[in-house]
Design a protein around this nucleic acid. Structure first.
Lengths: 170, 170
DNA sequence: ACTTGTCATGTTATTTCATATCATGTATTG
DNA sequence: CAATACATGATATGAAATAACATGACAAGT
C-alpha cells in the first residue's frame, strides 16, 4: 500500500483521478504545495491536520470521518470524533480537502493552491473519486439564478457513475 | 399554514421556488400530476406516501426525514424512521421528490412528470430551495468525464447562497 | 375458500455521521 | 512572562440512516 511504484508513463491531462500515476510523487507534490501555502498564509498545519491530509492524499479516494478517526487513533492521536472533524474543518475551509456530500466523506484536493469550484466524478462501484473543474454558475444554473435573483456563493457538483476500471470489468 | 391565499399575479417563469405564487393551487396541481402518473404506471401512492408528498409540497422547502416523521406520527402513522425513509425512497425513485445532499433533506419536485436532471438553489439563511434545470454533463464536467472514460449516470448540482428575500434583508 | 406470492407497513435495534460543551494545553505577541 | 488566541482532549448527545425481522393487506392461481 505504501510503495506501489508504477510506470508513471501516463502523464496526466486535466482530470486527475482514475488514471494510473506515480502516486508517491503525487502525494509529495501535493503535500509540499499545501505546506508552502500554509506558511505563506500563516496557517498552522499541525500534526493532526497534516496526518489527516496525508491519509487522504495517500488513499486518493473518499474516506469517512470515522475511518479517518480510526487511523488517527492507531497513530496515537486523540480518538474522539471532534479530533477528526476539526482537522477536516480546517482542511476543507482552506481548500486542501473537499467534502463529498453524496458520500458524507472527504477527499484530498487534487489541485491545491489553484482557486477552483470543484466537480467530482464518483464511481458507485469502487468509490474512487476524481476531481474536475466546473463552472455551473456559467451555464443554465447561472441563468436561472440571475432570473430568480439568487446569489450563488458556492456550488456542489457531483457526478455519480462508473469509473473506467469498473466499466471494463462489467 | 394551511390557507395562505396570495395574489398569484406573478405567474412563474422557469425556476419555481422563490417567487410568491398561489401555493394552494401549486400544491394541488402537483398532487394531481403525481396521482395521474402513478395510476398510469401502476405505482401505488399509498396513504403514507401521499401524506409525505403532501407535506413536502405544502412546505415548499427541504425537510429532514425526522421532521417528516414527526408529522407522520402526529397524523397517526407509524413513527419509526423506516416509515419515513421508505416513503421517501419511493418518492425519490419515481422522481416526485428530490434529496438535497447538502442538507440531508428532501424537497418535493417542482416539475413532476417531466424527466429532468435537477439543480437546486439553496438559501443558506432561510433554507428555501428552488429547483432549476441543469445539464452539467454537457459542459466542462461532461468533457472531463469523456476524457477520463467516466460514465455519468446521475448528477447532483446544488448551489448554496442567498435567496432574493434574504439578500434584501441584508 | 385456501394457499401462495408480493408488496407495504410496523417495530426493534444498531450503525454511522456530526456537533455542543467544557477542560486543558501550547504557541505567539505585546 | 503574562495575556490571549488558538489547538487539542474528553464526555456526552444529537441527528441521519439502515439492518433485520414480524405482521398485515391484497391479488392470482388452484
Amino acid at each position: 500500500m505504501t510503495s506501489d511504484a508504477r510506470p508513471a508513463s501516463v502523464e496526466d491531462t486535466a482530470p486527475v483521478g482514475f488514471q494510473e500515476h506515480d502516486h508517491q510523487t503525487c502525494v509529495e507534490t501535493a503535500l509540499t504545495s499545501v505546506e508552502a501555502q500554509c506558511s505563506a498564509e500563516g496557517l498552522r498545519l499541525t500534526p493532526v491536520r497534516r496526518k489527516v491530509l496525508e491519509m487522504l492524499l495517500q488513499e486518493h479516494r473518499a474516506l469517512g470521518a470515522y475511518a479517518i478517526l480510526d487511523q488517527l487513533r492507531a497513530e496515537g492521536f486523540g480518538s474522539q470524533p471532534p479530533v477528526a472533524y476539526r482537522a477536516l474543518e480546517f482542511l476543507v475551509q482552506n481548500g486542501f480537502v473537499h467534502k463529498i456530500e453524496r458520500l458524507n466523506a472527504f477527499v484530498a484536493c487534487s489541485h491545491p493552491g489553484q482557486s477552483h469550484s470543484p466537480a467530482f466524478m464518483i464511481c458507485r462501484k469502487c468509490d474512487a473519486v476524481a476531481e474536475a473543474q466546473s463552472s455551473p454558475a456559467k451555464g443554465a444554473l447561472g441563468a436561472a439564478a440571475r432570473a430568480a435573483g439568487f446569489e450563488i456563493e458556492r456550488t456542489v457538483v457531483e457526478a455519480e457513475g462508473l469509473c473506467p476500471d469498473c466499466t471494463e470489468k462489467a
